[in-house]
Design a protein around this nucleic acid. Structure first.
Lengths: 186, 186
DNA sequence: GTATCGCCGCGACGAAATGTCGCAGCCCTG
DNA sequence: CAGGGCTGCGACATTTCGTCGCGGCGATAC
């Protein structure tokens, strides 16, 4: 273990975005955490088994076939007790539900800052603070609503774009455009 | 399980919005579910204890102090094994995480249609696969969904188009056009 | 009375989103 | 190897959206 604080958290960072992963890793290390970065599902499993991390940061949309979602179970298998925090740039209610149901401990939407990540990792504001039903003076924007629904349907069809488009009654091309077009703030 | 009726799901619907609750309840009953509607946390606990429902639909933002979130644990206490599905008009990642961590089985953002609710109730997200795509035209939603949401927001603003437009984050002119375009076949 | 203000309905026009077609690459299966 | 389905993407015609502006209405305020 590190000589820093108490028992340092051993964090396995799984993200195919090397740039983002490195920055985040550096930020976490500066705060005394032990971090190992991997960019592929296979490497993630391998490290989880060999290194026995205590926490994991998992990017949902690894651009490979295996979604981050599919990685949750194997990771928990490889390292029992692992506290997995899912991180994603394309957050949606549907994927949130799926992630938590599969065993993730928390779920964060990019962009996030190091403090927020650490808080989530350690489980702060987890079961403690109540999000206090937000009172947005504003309804879910139509865009947001659409995004959520698309994610839901897409998930129902296992990520099959063509099928989802058909099911949604819109052109595949349009769905594609909608999909890669959304950073979507909220 | 209740062998009397065809193992019908006994659903406890907790929602302070009487209108919405009634409509939903009717829709569910028409599909063969047993539904009991309550409008307050206290009544919810009471019914959960006395009636022993198998499923619960819980609106997150009951406009009382006790958020729906806080009701999850007591409900699970009152009726062990209860499958709680959270329903809310103010969906957010944070509340989603909180709800599921507290024991909710699923989380849906309004507006939703009866089929979606039933799917969630029966736990399609857990293990069941749903290759059975609805009939064609079922998912024309994007438009329908938008329409529903617009109506909801419009109603909440007492029909004030300008205000609703502002709240929805779109131009008044656009809202007008969207409004008079729909022949609205419900 | 009339000035002001906010909401409503609508025409117009450029900007953006969408529907449609087509092409090429991939992977799977017969 | 051919055939079929999924995917990413370019091109182009249509449609919708965002914005500005007008005139009209009704409620207050002056």
């Amino acid at each position: 273990m590190s000589a820093t604080t108490t028992r340092a958290m051993r964090v396995l960072l799984v993200d195919d975005d090397a740039t983002f992963a490195d920055i985040l890793a550096r930020a976490l290390r500066r705060r005394g955490l032990e971090v190992v970065v991997v960019h592929t599902p296979d490497a993630a499993i391998e490290r989880a088994t060999a290194w026995a991390p205590t926490h994991a940061l998992l990017d949902l949309n690894l651009n490979c076939e295996t979604s981050g979602l599919a990685l949750i179970a194997p990771l928990l298998d490889a390292a029992p007790g692992l506290r997995i925090t899912v991180l994603t740039g394309y957050a949606s209610i549907a994927t949130t539900v799926a992630a938590i149901q599969r065993g993730a401990a928390d779920y964060l939407a990019k962009p996030v800052d190091a403090p927020a990540v650490i808080a989530a990792l350690s489980g702060h504001g987890d079961d403690a603070a109540e999000p206090a039903v937000e009172a947005p003076g504003q309804r879910m924007s139509l865009k947001r609503l659409e995004w959520e629904h698309i994610q839901r349907v897409l998930a129902e069809h296992d990520g099959n774009i063509s099928e989802a488009a058909r099911s949604l009654g819109l052109h595949r091309r349009t769905l594609q455009r909608k999909l890669d077009k959304r950073p979507v703030k909220f």
